[in-house]
């Protein structure tokens, strides 16, 4: 009889019950996927959670990340050393430099280009600004200046105004620009485009034209050097002015002894004469009446 008590022989090829079960378990797909994906994922998450639960560790982590970031940002490849400004007059360039004054050298990661652009464009004389970092550590600022086309006599002083009515600079800063046409009146700058069109129409007046005055923020008066005012209507002022100029050409209207040409009501043109002329007119009418009586 063979021994009934089982003694394990070293060379038994059969797997033990437990080895067999473990192998079967290992061949179970769900167990396998859990063990190969689930358990490592859980371990990673758990370890990460334990590490993060200590605030000192979080600080250290943040510090090291910041340090790493700084070490990359501080590389000479990313350094910006100087600023170049193109498209601006020297005065404006000085102003831009005064406005945007980063302390070079600094890293290009620290530059807020959008913010810089906004700050440069906030300068009145700048229409469009473009800021970029060029190779060689150059901060290139390309500026399109506003071109002053009008002088606006506002309550707070004289302003240079561009074609869109934006104020460019106070006139005192640029005293050499007095050849520009002059407008006056409250918020006259907002109708700059209309004013320019009127100035073009009023070209034949030449030196006699003194400027335009915005009346009641709605219509224009043309003021001539000898005190004559042409009061233009609110709508279609240019044809009205054209009409006046044509009358001037034909009948020398503006050379006569008048104070105002009132075109505000398009159906009715009113001329205001000077007091002398009015008196003369009356005298002439009286003599006419007398002559009639005599005749």
């Amino acid at each position: 009889m063979r021994p009934l008590i089982r003694r394990r022989q070293a060379h038994d090829p059969a797997p033990s019950r437990w080895a067999y079960r473990v192998q079967r378990l290992w061949l179970t797909p769900i167990f396998r996927s859990v063990l190969r994906v689930g358990v490592p994922a859980f371990a990673v998450v758990a370890l990460g959670g334990v590490y993060i639960s200590d605030p000192a560790n979080v600080l250290r982590l943040q510090d090291s990340v910041a340090e790493l970031r700084r070490s990359i940002e501080d590389r000479p490849e990313f350094r910006v050393n100087f600023m170049s400004i193109t498209g601006a007059s020297p005065v404006l360039a000085e102003e831009i430099r005064a406005t945007v004054s980063p302390d070079f050298p600094l890293s290009s990661f620290d530059l807020d280009l959008e913010g810089l652009r906004r700050r440069v464009e906030n300068i009145r004389a700048v229409s469009v600004a473009e800021i970029r970092i060029r190779s060689g550590g150059e901060l290139a600022v390309t500026v399109t200046e506003r071109r002053p086309v009008l002088v606006w006599q506002a309550r707070e002083g004289l302003w240079l105004v561009d074609a869109e009515g934006e104020r460019v600079a106070p006139l005192l800063a640029r005293p050499d620009l007095d050849y520009l046409p002059v407008i006056a009146g409250d918020r006259a700058n907002e109708a700059a485009a209309q004013a320019l069109a009127l100035f073009e129409t009023a070209e034949p007046l030449g030196e006699r034209l003194r400027g335009l005055v915005r009346m009641g923020e709605r219509r224009w008066d043309v003021v001539l050097t000898d005190g004559i005012r042409i009061q233009l209507p609110e709508t279609d002022p240019a044809p009205a002015l054209d009409w006046v100029l044509a009358q001037d050409d034909a009948q020398e209207l503006l050379d006569r002894d008048i104070l105002r040409v009132d075109l505000r009501d398009p159906s009715r043109t009113v001329l205001q004469l000077t007091p002398d002329a009015l008196a003369e007119l009356r005298r002439m009418r009286e003599t006419e009446i007398l002559g009639d009586h005599q005749g």
Partner: peptide
């Protein structure tokens, strides 16, 4: 049986 089944499963 275990030996055979295990090897075949493997």
């Amino acid at each position: 049986i275990r030996t055979a089944v295990q090897a075949a499963q493997k």
